[in-house]
């Protein structure tokens, strides 16, 4: 199965060289082929599932616990101003 590597790369915000496009294109096609193989299985009696482990309703109480090192998070920002993350122009 063919895959539009450019479209996928664009959605993932990845810049790929022509060699990478070829390499990943082939790899992704093989993954899709594998999925096609799986599709041949008869799953009529299998419930659709989203998770592999049978767990449900893992909940936490609605309680505030302030983050201990909150200021460290902002240190990850390439640029910050007024205690906010600074980002370049969003729309041209």
């Amino acid at each position: 199965m063919k895959i539009d590597v450019e479209a996928v790369a664009k959605l993932a915000r990845l810049g790929l060289s022509p060699e990478e496009k070829k390499l990943f294109g082939e790899q992704l096609s093989r993954i899709l082929d594998h999925a096609d193989t799986l599709k041949k299985l008869n799953t009529d009696k299998v419930e659709p599932t989203s998770h592999a482990i049978p767990m449900k309703n893992v909940l936490r109480e609605d309680k505030v616990i302030p983050c201990a090192n909150v200021d460290d998070i902002l240190l990850n920002a390439p640029q910050a101003e007024e205690h906010m993350f600074k980002v370049p122009r969003i729309v041209e």
């Binding site: 936490r60 505030v64 616990i65 302030p66 983050c67 909150v70 998070i73 902002l74 205690h83 906010m84």
Partner: peptide, 19 residues
Amino acid sequence: ACSTKFGAKPNTNICPVCT
């Protein structure tokens, strides 16, 4: 477990999970 309080100083109600 970050607070939802409105009007706090920017980026003080954040943690590794929500960022």
